[in-house]
Nucleic acid binder design. Structure first.
Lengths: 343, 343
DNA sequence: TTGAAAGCGCTAACAT
DNA sequence: ATGTTAGCGCTTTCAA
């Protein structure tokens, strides 16, 4: 038989469809004997309730949407995995939407998800513009929504964030504690996340009364992906050709960190002996680099799990107000930093 | 108003819901004047048709399922991205299911997807057991299904594959052409994909009348992920401690390739001068290793696109028979191979 | 060119 | 403890 329905089961078991429904949902008393008959019929016909029909009635689709800038990026998949883990435990399915980092695409995907009647939406690394211009604030009125690793003050929405200030601080304090007083800073353009780190860089150096040198601020064009390594190599090489070179470099992410190491290698500068390097993110490449890159772990997996938990919680208890959850970061000490030689 | 329905639109425009439906679907003649009124009403009320209701009637959910062993693996995301690209163009949504590589989980996820009424399913790297035991053959009878990078002779199902035989051949022939006659082979246990490559290894060496040495077959426990690097280092180090060491190593994937390079480095063996290494997969780490790893590109993005195209095609034209599509591979020559010193 | 009404598969009052 | 029935929001005959 072509896909049995609840009516087929009812007929087969000799009961009404209501009774079958009750057995399936186990939400009203049914006589044991009847239940047995129905369960047998279900098994016999290999009946599976139709989600669409169920959802149409208005409860829930048991589905959430996940919007991601790019699934091929090295750390978003880890966040997604955390989300998946939590969701599959609660029998929620995941719509995956990839925006290629485009502002407009983000809005379109959001629209699609709303039309597909998802129960909630998770946005990883949302575009700053869409937060700031109130787009997500509007969305949050219509549907349970959690923004991951994006924030703007005053926007009424749920946020789950890594504590990037603390992460940057951990990295910098570590270098300073090792004795470094000539620390370069490597970032890419146009990113809130790098802005934060740069801010912390200034503050921390000032706090320790370390003079800030203009030539120690290195800015490259693009920050995430393979091309970043090449760009970082060029920028760092240029810096290392100068007379006075820093004893350490804080790179805003691990791609850049790897770039720093390769630049140093090309110029015969030993890491960490002649130059300490610290990265950020703890993506997989930091662990297979030579030497292994010291970095700051954002704990992307936990981030995903925490976000998904929050979302499912909101879906279940829609009344509550907005939350902003800030997660810890960890310094991962590996082999790319040491004390400077001649201090 | 809370989510307007087609009835609200009809009332607002002063027509029947049937007419509204016709305007939305544009499938029956409607007087221009009426159409205008309806369209205005739709815009005014910001009406969006409810997918669930539409789908319930039985056409299509415009949704496909993607089952993946692990989204944090370095190359599955690329396949998923290819799939996403094609699907979003055709306004199909993607359910993402991560199985953690477990045989049973694969079956459960498949079941879930069927219940969610997806229009079709894509399985990346399906477990061999589930192909062989006929599970997927059964599924293929119920729903459009395409298996990506998994195969078993005689199973009636759609397959899209990379030509791993050709890829292995390209790698080996390249090494041999460079003059290598003492080539080690590094693989992990229990994988069809490594079995194929080992087979080709034997055949190709034989073809070139190169004697096969037992000590040149290196097998490690687990093949995919960070731990693989460490395992490969150990295995290779052990091999390189012997008196006669090979002039080249063919690693079954790039993780292993990186492991080989690190092992060599630890032992003061220069790559490629003293030892050539070739990997497989062309994942991102092959490009940031030092030196850059020569490898075989499986073109995962194209693989994803081709698979999605095939699936959507089958969904549209369900009558056709099963297909087996085999995609090309490319040798990516970088810096980890050269001719052996003393031949 | 338009509308009334049946029905997709299910749940949940309301009866009994 | 069980059944009857009215929808959920939409598409699609069938009739006008």
């Amino acid at each position: 038989m072509e896909k049995p329905t609840i009516a087929d089961v009812a007929k087969y078991a000799g009961v009404s469809i209501t009774t079958v429904s009750r057995v399936i949902n186990n939400n009203y008393p049914v006589k044991e004997e009847t239940r047995q008959k129905v369960e047998e019929a279900i098994k016999e016909l290999n009946f599976k309730p139709n989600y669409l029909a169920r959802s149409l009635i208005g409860k829930s689709t048991h589905t959430i949407g996940v919007i991601v800038p790019s699934i091929t990026n090295l750390f978003f998949p880890v966040v997604v995995k955390g989300i998946e883990k939590v969701c599959s435990q609660k029998a929620f399915s995941l719509f995956l939407c990839d925006t290629d980092g485009k502002e407009e695409s983000e809005r379109i995907q959001m629209q699609n998800l709303l039309e597909k009647q998802v129960d909630g939406v998770l946005v990883i690394d949302p575009r700053y513009e869409n937060i700031e211009n109130g787009f997500y604030e509007e969305c949050a009125k219509k549907i349970p929504l959690v923004l991951i690793n994006g924030y703007h003050r005053g926007i009424r929405c749920n946020f789950v964030l890594n504590d990037q200030e603390m992460g940057a601080l951990q990295a910098l304090e570590y270098l300073i504690k090792l004795g470094h007083r000539d620390i370069a800073f490597l970032r890419a353009k146009n990113s809130y996340s790098y802005d934060i780190k740069e801010q912390i860089y200034y503050e921390t150096l000032q706090k320790h009364q370390i003079p800030i040198k203009e030539e120690n601020i290195l800015v490259i064009e693009s920050g995430n992906g393979l091309e970043t390594v090449e760009l970082a190599i060029q920028a760092v090489q240029k810096r290392l050709e100068q007379k006075e070179i820093p004893t350490a470099i804080f790179a805003c992410n691990d791609w850049m960190g790897v770039g720093v190491m390769q630049a140093a290698k090309k110029m015969g500068i030993a890491i960490p002996k002649d130059l300490s390097v610290i990265g950020y993110d703890n993506i997989v490449i930091s662990e297979i680099s030579e030497p292994k890159l010291t970095t700051v772990d954002q704990n992307m997996y936990s981030l995903g799990k925490a976000s998904a938990k929050l979302l499912l919680d909101i879906i279940k208890h829609p009344t509550q107000g907005f939350q902003k959850i800030i997660l810890d970061t960890n310094l991962i000490v590996r082999d790319s930093c040491t004390s400077p030689k001649n201090k």
